[in-house]
Design a protein around this nucleic acid. Sequence first.
DNA 1: TATTGTTATACTCTATAACTATA
DNA 2: TATAGTTATAGAGTATAACAATA
Lengths: 154, 154
Amino acid sequence: MSHTNLAPSSAVDVGSLSRLIGFALRRAQTAVLQDFSATLGEENIRPAQYSVLEVLRASPGLRQAQVSAALGIKTTNFVPLFDALEAAGLAERRAISADRRAKGLFLSERGATTLARLHTKVAAHEARFTARLGEDGKGVLLGLLARLQDPAFG
Amino acid sequence: MSHTNLAPSSAVDVGSLSRLIGFALRRAQTAVLQDFSATLGEENIRPAQYSVLEVLRASPGLRQAQVSAALGIKTTNFVPLFDALEAAGLAERRAISADRRAKGLFLSERGATTLARLHTKVAAHEARFTARLGEDGKGVLLGLLARLQDPAFG
DNA sequence: TATTGTTATACTCTATAACTATA
DNA sequence: TATAGTTATAGAGTATAACAATA
């Protein structure tokens, strides 16, 4: 075996890192992200792309700036991301008559079909981690994570 | 103000993303990481570098492979990361007599002094987020995050 | 033969500055 | 003047393959 596993070895004393929220978040996110990528690996869809497709399904017709802001992606980085989805035939930009600068974003028919298939796989992925926490634990976790990103709790 | 804020707008319906563990982790980690970077910005130390310094303090003399594995960093990526710390005079590689291939990693004196200063700033950073959760909430969060990355809970 | 550290490299993510066409 | 989208570009983070020295 020539590859170095990403999973951290727990035999080493990492000092105060073990009590740092940011360090724990990184490790957890790495684990979840790896499983997510493995889950959608054959689909050639990355996490950010999946999140865009799902927003378009839930909120069709939004402008690029709205979608990218909702996902915390800078508009400048959103362009090539969405270009890839459009090139794959999964989503499309449409003109907005009220403002000729802006563009409304939509799933294509194929995008909707693909997303439905992705939902199944993502649900299985999510179930794997929910099983590690319990349903109640997942609810608690989501509440705590929401607080972390909300300055109102500072 | 010409920059697009990373903070996601909550006015948009993001569909099932709002109940996805991975999505919540990403948002929380972005918030914590931004504060961490702002906290250590003037020090010119990035999160991964800080984590290496702290491991060297807690566990001096480890081999590169041990440190990188403990932090979930591939050895191939660890090399330039540690090179930068060494170039900054904060850490050093020392020969290991028992195995001439391996190298033991240590803080320099200056590294120890610097790390002590960083500890103060990082403690303030950590306190900001602990305040959003409460001490108990932080404990619960760390427990749940540990479960996410531990297949034993699958 | 296997392991430690290393180099080279590539792809993704994220960030800033500057442009265009509209408003 | 300001805004929506875009381009170019640069810096991190992360991945694989292959190598030299040593075990």
